[in-house]
Nucleic acid binder design. Structure first.
Length: 477
RNA sequence: GGCUUGGUGGCAGAGUGGUUAUGCAGAGGACUGCAAAUCCUUGUAUGCCGGUUCGAUUCCGACCCAAGCCUCCA
């Protein structure tokens, strides 16, 4: 079975064949650090992290470049609003977001590129575009891309600019030769941050930095170019125009875009004030839960976050860890290695079947419910014919591609329980006391009393369970 | 107006030219003093209309509806 990737350019699933066998060059547009990171950024970063991990699982040598755009109009505006130097502002946000990405469980990209660290590359790139007639410098010190010089413009988003009248901006900036031309270099206004260039003091326009950084770190052609779906137009369209105007060759072989995040069915936006910040997510949920929730559907779809979105994921993660923890005490005396191997192969096949289909993590997770059901069913038998701990270890290994379930199961369960008791001000002594009271009542066959104790604990969010090994308590989800 | 993506059971959400995953919720059962957890069984769906086909939810076309992009956006 071979990996298939949905290519936005061709609007179809294609077999994945990299430019160089065994090697993958991937670029995903990261964050413009004009503010705090939100769920949308988290989603996009997790998706491309998992794509990288799966490509490596398949044996590819992956170079994953991701960028921070750390200079742009909004950064300057937002920094000015709080009286901070824009570079300092960007620097602080990058430091914060780096930490959050780590807490989210993302691997650092192979290269974390930054626009302001590549100003020379950007200037060089623009010079090339001017030299071959694709760009022009205005008297104002601005440089624009001449859209008419790139007839294929619109091939990714399938927009025909002549028909797409609404797109034409009427606020024609002085020096622009055509409404559709877009800025490659913007001259600095007095007091604004600037870099020296052949066109005077200024800064890069949006779009050009990604073309320049791609060229610098990955070369003229790459295998996969990704980002959020909102970047298809105009950002990626402009990148294509810039890069292909310089190289004369197709830029990226596969264009991959993840869906957008909605909150309770509504678009997440600043004006609605319904955005969820990554910071707040991380304060409430661990990386296992967040990643599980984000990866439960296909990356190309939008995600709609409702009230049960994260709690649902939390319950599933807890349940899966519970099963893994129970495996530790399984009886191995009747374990058959051939049967175990067959089961492991079957699980692997299901895993790859789902992931090979355009990285369908949602399908993979759905399959995994069957794996856990299998283990739970075997655990009910006195002695399984399977080596359940070997199977569980294999499942954990596969989940490593999603970077989920990688903690020690018993440790995870007990830390969740501890955290629950702490936030609810419950002590283990108290629980032991109530459990003893219930045991006494049960001994006296005073079941009304015993049930009253159980209800009391239940009202505090604790579930009492009688097991063959004695009475235990758990969190009631 | 242009473009894109979708419309699947109570909700969420996959795959598939011919027995329609999975999760939550529901029903029945095993287990239990009763529960919980777990397991087993189970009901309910493919927007509308045409076409291709022996057969379409899946392919094609029209239509309706929704979301997104066309302005900064992951």
């Amino acid at each position: 079975m071979s990996l298939k990737i949905y290519n936005v350019m061709s609007r179809s699933k294609e077999d994945f064949v990299p430019l160089t066998p065994g090697v993958v060059k991937m670029y995903a547009c990261g964050i413009t650090v004009s503010g705090d990171a939100h769920v949308g950024h988290a989603y996009q970063s997790v998706v491309f992290d998992v794509i990288t991990r799966y490509l490596r699982y398949k044996g590819f040598d992956v170079t994953y470049v991701r960028n921070y755009t750390d200079v742009d109009d909004n950064i300057i505006k937002n920094a000015n609003a709080i009286g901070q130097d824009p570079m300092e502002f960007a620097e602080e946000h990058i430091a914060t977001i780096d930490k959050q990405m780590d807490a989210l469980g993302n691997n650092p990209p192979t290269v974390m590129a930054r626009a302001t660290h590549c100003i020379d590359d950007i200037i060089k790139f623009i010079e090339q575009l001017i030299a071959n007639g694709h760009a022009y410098a205005a008297d104002t010190g601005d440089v624009y891309f001449r859209l008419a010089s790139f007839p294929e413009y619109g091939k990714l988003s399938h927009i025909n600019m002549e028909k797409n009248e609404v797109a034409v901006r009427k606020d024609l900036e002085p020096g622009k030769q055509n409404d559709l031309d877009f800025a490659l270099w913007k001259s600095a206004k007095p007091g604004e941050i600037y870099w020296d260039s052949p066109w005077g003091r200024g800064r890069p326009g949006w779009h050009i930095e990604c073309s320049a950084m791609n060229m610098r770190f990955l070369g003229e052609q790459i295998d996969i170019h990704g980002g959020g779906r909102d970047l298809i137009f105009p950002h990626h369209e402009n990148e294509i125009a810039q890069t292909e105007s310089v190289t004369g060759r197709p830029f990226a072989k596969y264009w991959v875009h993840c869906g957008l995040v909605k909150i309770n069915g509504q678009k997440m936006s600043k004006s609605l004030g319904n955005g969820i910040l990554l910071r707040d997510m991380l304060a409430k949920y661990d990386a296992d839960i967040i990643r599980f929730a984000l990866l439960r559907n296909a990356y190309s779809n939008d995600i709609d976050i409702n009230d049960s979105f994260f709690p649902d994921a939390a319950r599933h993660i807890y349940k899966m860890y519970s099963t893994l923890a129970r495996v530790n005490s399984a009886d191995k005396s009747k374990a058959d290695s051939a049967k175990t191997e067959t089961k492991i192969a079957e699980i692997t096949a299901e895993f790859e079947h789902a992931m090979d289909d355009n990285f369908n993590t949602g399908h993979m997770i759905a399959s995994s419910f069957g794996w856990f059901d299998f283990i739970d069913a075997e655990l009910r038998k006195p002695a399984s014919n399977y080596d359940l701990s070997a199977i569980a270890a294999h499942i954990v290994k596969l989940f490593g591609v999603l970077n989920i379930l990688q903690a020690d199961a018993c440790t995870y369960i007990s830390s969740v329980k501890d955290a629950f008791l702490r936030t609810h001000n419950i002590t283990t002594e108290f629980i032991a006391d109530r459990l003893n009271a219930r045991a006494d009542a049960k001994k006296n066959r005073d079941f009304a009393r015993a049930d009253a104790v159980r209800d009391e604990l239940l009202s505090m969010g604790l579930q009492v369970c009688d097991t063959p090994h004695g009475t235990e308590w758990d969190i009631k989800f």
